[in-house]
């Protein structure tokens, strides 16, 4: 056999097996430590049920808000050229690359400024409160959603909108009747990615909303608190729970993205 013929495919196979091995090792270690039913048993704990409910609720709210902001923002960035567009584009990427803890600290500083204090006193309390979790997740998830949706909208040919305009649609009408339906799958995928990013968010959440037991305790915060209390079994049970939830979400992305025309 000529080694040149199988060396490359073999290298590819090794890479795939290696990457898969890491994931399998991660899951197997968790299952081996705590048992496959540990997440189910963990759900018997009302504190953990609260953490799961809080995580799902805040992540859904944050992802919903993120997509609501990202759709128009990404559409504007995808369709319009304006002076400084590249600067805006780069700035919007910052929350994605910044360490989440740094984002959390920056949010705290904003809320400690005079306008921030006014918002805290008169509108919504964020610091050490549930809305703080949503704000922290939203800040990180929006940047991600804009990035994804800009590519989605660039993928919708502007000709469709132009034709719709000449058929009588206003810019909003063309967006609603043509662009949005054509971007439907992309928007769903952006929501799921924003949701996934939010549900696992720890750094910004714990900095802004704190780790208040039974109040601002999301799943990642709960894992951290278990570890801090040397309850490794409890932490691993939660990790498995988070893994299971994440797998469901990733499968959803595949389903929505893979079936796209």
């Amino acid at each position: 056999m000529n080694p040149r013929r199988w060396a490359f495919p073999a290298a590819l196979a090794v890479a795939v097996i290696g990457a898969l091995g890491v994931v399998v090792a991660l899951l197997a270690a968790q299952v081996g430590y705590a048992g496959l039913l540990a997440p189910v048993r963990a759900l018997a704990d009302p504190g953990i049920r609260h953490a799961v409910g809080l995580s799902l609720g805040t992540a859904t709210a944050a992802a919903g808000l993120a997509v609501a902001v990202a759709v128009p923002a990404a559409y504007a960035l995808a369709r319009h050229r304006f002076p400084g567009a590249a600067v805006v584009d780069t700035l919007l990427d910052l929350p994605v690359v910044l360490s989440p803890v740094a984002v959390g600290v920056a949010l705290l500083l904003v809320l400690r400024s005079a306008p921030g204090r006014w918002v805290e006193d008169h509108l919504v309390r964020f610091v050490f409160e549930v809305p703080g979790i949503v704000l922290a997740q939203f800040t990180v998830a929006t940047a991600l959603a804009i990035r994804v949706l800009k590519a989605v909208f660039q993928g919708v040919d502007v000709r469709y909108e132009q034709v719709a305009r000449f058929l009588g649609c206003t810019p909003w009408g063309a967006f609603r009747r043509v662009t949005l339906p054509l971007a439907r799958r992309g928007i769903a995928a952006a929501f799921i990615l924003a949701w996934a990013r939010s549900v696992g968010e720890f750094g910004a959440t714990v900095t802004l909303a704190g780790a208040v037991l039974g109040k601002t305790e999301t799943i990642p915060v709960a894992i951290y608190l278990r570890l801090a209390g040397v309850d490794v079994t409890g932490a691993v049970a939660l990790m498995l729970l988070l893994s299971a939830l994440s797998l469901v979400v990733l499968a959803g992305v595949r389903f929505l993205g893979g079936g796209a025309r």
């Binding site: 040919d157 000709r159 469709y160 132009q162 034709v163 305009r165 000449f166 058929l167 009588g168 649609c169 206003t170 810019p171 009408g173």
Partner: peptide
């Protein structure tokens, strides 16, 4: 704006 012109457009790719 296009929607007020009452003209029609058939692009090359038909759209």
């Amino acid at each position: 704006p296009p929607e007020q012109r009452r003209v029609a457009y058939v692009p090359q790719d038909l759209a």
